[in-house]
Design a binder for these strands. Sequence first.
DNA 1: GTCTATAACCTGATAGAC
DNA 2: GTCTATCAGGTTATAGAC
Lengths: 212, 212
Amino acid sequence: MCHISNEMALVKNKKTKDGAEKKIVDAARKLFTEKGYDAVKTRDIAKEAGINLALLNYYFRSKENLFEIIMKENMGRFMEVITGIVNNEETSLEKKIEMLVANYIEILSVNPDMPLFVISNAKIDDHRMKLREKFLGSYFMKQIQQAMKAGKIADINPASLMLNIVGLTIFPFVARRMFQSSNGLTHEAFNELMQERKKMIPKWIEAMLKVK
Amino acid sequence: MCHISNEMALVKNKKTKDGAEKKIVDAARKLFTEKGYDAVKTRDIAKEAGINLALLNYYFRSKENLFEIIMKENMGRFMEVITGIVNNEETSLEKKIEMLVANYIEILSVNPDMPLFVISNAKIDDHRMKLREKFLGSYFMKQIQQAMKAGKIADINPASLMLNIVGLTIFPFVARRMFQSSNGLTHEAFNELMQERKKMIPKWIEAMLKVK
DNA sequence: GTCTATAACCTGATAGAC
DNA sequence: GTCTATCAGGTTATAGAC
């Protein structure tokens, strides 16, 4: 993508980035993802980043701006993964479902608060609408429709199928806090459960696809 | 339920309640449920209720107090329904699943923002932990375990089964805003979709319960 | 670039008139 | 009971020194 001779310049321009700017973004990502926009104060971010409040505004001009950056980051990661899997013309239907589930769970195990962040932040409304289009306009959907015509799977509303795959996979993360209370599931037990579901969900989906 | 002669007294005691107090609660319910605790300002509630800010504090003393009332309202409705269904010793496993799904969807169709409210409000942490216990300690779970022993259904982690039922049912409401954008699903189409799912989810669950 | 100090604004809650 | 006015504290953002 770029010549070796350019790399030094790149490093010089963008710096190695363990400076204040990166510290602030890291702190913002952590706090916003955990608690949402309103609950996080710019002072919290500055403190978490170990820098001064004024510096945050020097780099990012406003709280809203900083939030926007984190949000795009989060949405982007998800979208990339989905798009890659869902438009691959080489893989089978079964493989796609398996990959979707596995990749979601992989990403979310590292960043379990992300779904709640995406879903519950009113500020996101503009950005998050593309998931549906990405799914419904994909090669994956073509495969589904072909299989339905061939009688290999039962008729199902595409939106419902999408809700089933995404719901079975993501819902546990969304509702995670309801089960991880003091006397509830430990962090380890939750992850174990999700690893188990990673194997089962594709099988469950297949079974569902045979129901008339 | 109550004698006609009592009705006048009731009206006198509790008032007809289209006074300020009810207006405030109604406004608070709407806004809190839609946007969450932090995003809603007491001024917003007062404005929505068409009364003055001071009156809100006169009746409810604090924002937190008012929130608590709404929350108990929301949690209460859900809990009642679940408890009733899940501990009924007369109904079959299949019937219970069907009733859980149908009742959830019924309640949520009227109040579609409720799940997001419950799930995403950090303030609720104390109250919401009982769902898991209610489920896992129920007669419903006994039936599941019996059926598993009898080989009628495949072995499944009880927590996973619960996540499947609740997830398939509730997730669409949680993620609703992602699909109901300008060029997305209309309100009517969404409700139609959920009515369809009301029929299908019990069948899907049954199919899943046969997967090894 | 980074800091301290402070301006400008927002928000929950109360005092006090009616 | 209901209102206007206002307080006390918090919060975002900026000015200005270094």
